[in-house]
C-alpha cells in the first residue's frame, strides 16, 4: 500500500550496511508510515479512546487487542500498521528490540489499586499478566509468529545510540537478519510510538541523527 522511501542519497558502499527500511510513528493523535500521514484524530485526547479508533480505522481485526494493557495496545497497533502497510514480508526470524521510559506503568497502577483495597483485594490475573513490559514483545511475536530474539529495555530518554548499537550487534553477530526496533512509551495520556525495521539493504542510514529526526 505504501511506497518505500527511496534512498536516493545513499552512497553505493552503504548498501551492505544496516539501514532503516521502514518506520512508523504514532504520536499527537496521528499515525504515519515512512513519513506519510495515514490517519489523524486530534479529538480523542484520552489514549485508550484514541488507540481504539486507530485499531478500528486500520481494520486490525485482532479481538485480543481489547484484553491488552495500554503498552501492549500501543505496541501491537504500531507493529501491525508498520508490518501491514509497507508490503514487507513477515520474516519469522525478525528480532524485536523495544524500549521506553515508563515500563508498563498504567497496568502496574491498576494492579496496585486492586490489591490496595483491603476488604476486597482480589488481584486480577488478567491485569497481572500484563505487568511486565516484555509482554508487548510476546504479543507481537504471537500475532506474527516470530520465533526470534526479543528484548525490552528501559531508559529515561529515547536512546538512539543504544538502539543502534544493539540492533547492529544482532545483525552483525548473525543473531538475526532483520530487526524491528524502537520506542513505545505510554503513561496515562502521554504516548509516543516510533518503530523502525533495520536490515542490510537499501534504506535510510542508521544514525543517531536520523533516528532523532524520524522520531
Amino acid at each position: 500500500m505504501e511506497e518505500v522511501i527511496q534512498p536516493f542519497y545513499l552512497e553505493k558502499e552503504n548498501r551492505m550496511k544496516n539501514n532503516i527500511i521502514h518506520y512508523c510513528n504514532i504520536k499527537d493523535g496521528s499515525v504515519s508510515v515512512n513519513g506519510k500521514s495515514l490517519y489523524v484524530n486530534t479529538v480523542e485526547k484520552d489514549f485508550l479512546s484514541f488507540i481504539k479508533t486507530v485499531y478500528k480505522q486500520f481494520d486490525l481485526a485482532y479481538p485480543k487487542f481489547y484484553k491488552m494493557d495500554p503498552l501492549c495496545k500501543l505496541s501491537i497497533v504500531a507493529a501491525s500498521i508498520l508490518l501491514e502497510n509497507t508490503g514487507s514480508e513477515i520474516d519469522p526470524n525478525m528480532a524485536l528490540v523495544l524500549s521506553n521510559k515508563s515500563s508498563c506503568i498504567d497496568i502496574d497502577r491498576k494492579h496496585q489499586e486492586t490489591i490496595s483495597q483491603e476488604a476486597d483485594s482480589y488481584a486480577s490475573p488478567a491485569n497481572f499478566v500484563y505487568t511486565l513490559p516484555n509482554i508487548a514483545l510476546g504479543e507481537i511475536s504471537i500475532k506474527y509468529k516470530l520465533q526470534s530474539e526479543n528484548s525490552f529495555f528501559i531508559f529515561e530518554y529515547f536512546n538512539p545510540k543504544f538502539l543502534i548499537d544493539y540492533t547492529n550487534s544482532l545483525i552483525d553477530l548473525g543473531k538475526s537478519n532483520r530487526v524491528l526496533s524502537g520506542w513505545v512509551e505510554v503513561n496515562e495520556n502521554n504516548y509516543n510510538a516510533f518503530l523502525f525495521i533495520v536490515e542490510k539493504s537499501d534504506g535510510i542510514e542508521l544514525t543517531q541523527k536520523n533516528l532523532i529526526k524520524l522520531k
Binding site: D120, Y122, S124, P125, A126, V129
Partner: peptide, 13 residues
Amino acid sequence: SIDALELIIILDK
C-alpha cells in the same frame, strides 16, 4: 487459561 482464573475469582468474590 488466564480467563479461567478470572472466572474462579468471580465465583469466589
